[in-house]
Design a protein around this nucleic acid. Structure first.
Lengths: 165, 165
DNA sequence: TTGATATATGTCATAATATAACATATCAAC
DNA sequence: GTTGATATGTTATATTATGACATATATCAA
């Protein structure tokens, strides 16, 4: 079945190839970097890419269990730790959930737009070295190593929905 | 005992009056807004102001229990819900912890600088309507209602500590 | 190729964080 | 003072996450 219940065969096929491409790209980067892209890690990434939304660790674990790839929480959390550590997956702190990186090709600070109505999550790229946060930090003498930017609100789809009501 | 184990009486006294003032200010705002600033809510705010750092809900609950103000998780979570809803306290998503607002006088989007070494948290004010996140959102047609900005790294104190080693 | 070391997995147990549900109490406004 | 809304007390449980330790697999040097 297509993800999101999308019945359109064409879109489905596109998405499949986009998943395949993304996995291949991560696989290549792991080889280059000397990282072990093990079956569980690969499958977790595939699941996140296929769903194309933020999933909780236990949702992912359920999938792994169905497929005989691991049944205990640490299996999922370890794979997620690996994938987030290397930037292939991001954690959405607000949702305690994980989403495949939408911009895996470049180093960036991700910023997320989270719809409170349909729970969809869009990823934008930002540059940490510019912007007010960097100004504040340097004025304070604080060294930023990592930043969490998550905006919550209404996505375009849900705005139109609520307007027509 | 002074918070943070600070043995200096003068500093301690200053901090006490700053806590008192902040509580009084929140109390006044609750009266104006017709909100009930109940004993539990007041005490939770006091605890957070006294500690002057991010506390987990269960740390707060332990304090409440010691004082006979409530022994079950919902007591703490409800007070924290009230305080965060009205902007008197902020939740640090990265730490699953809560901290008293350092800028209670004005409406703002808080940004936090979290030290990964000593766990101290500094609060800065930002303006959501400016900046790149707002640009991205308006370009996408997304309406931001709330934003989470949390930077993780090293605070000035911990930087000097690590340099002298 | 083998042995040594590091890395990854399987599993059990439990910790830490958070909420649902419902009875009781208190407040606020009429 | 009655009533409807709001807040609290309490039990139970849901959700998210990690510690610990045994086993397995990968990596690499000798």
């Amino acid at each position: 079945m297509p993800p999101n219940g999308d019945p359109i065969g064409f879109a489905h096929h596109d998405h499949e190839s986009c998943v395949t491409d993304a996995v291949a790209s991560v696989e290549a980067r792991c080889i280059t970097a000397g990282l072990q892209f093990t079956p569980v890690r690969k499958r977790v990434l595939q699941i996140l890419l296929e769903e194309h939304r933020a999933l909780g660790a236990y949702e992912i674990l359920d999938r792994l269990r169905d497929e005989g790839l691991g049944s205990q929480p640490p299996v999922a959390y370890r794979a997620l730790d690996f994938l987030t550590k290397h930037g292939f997956v991001h954690k959405i702190e607000r949702l305690n959930a994980f989403i495949a990186c939408a911009h895996p090709h470049e180093v960036h600070t991700p910023a997320f737009l989270i719809c409170r109505d349909c729970n969809s999550v869009a990823e934008a790229e930002t540059d940490l070295t510019q912007g007010r946060l960097a100004q504040i930090a340097s004025a304070t003498g604080f060294i930023i190593e990592r930043a969490i930017l998550e905006a919550e609100g209404l996505c375009p789809n849900c705005i139109s929905k609520s307007e027509t009501v």
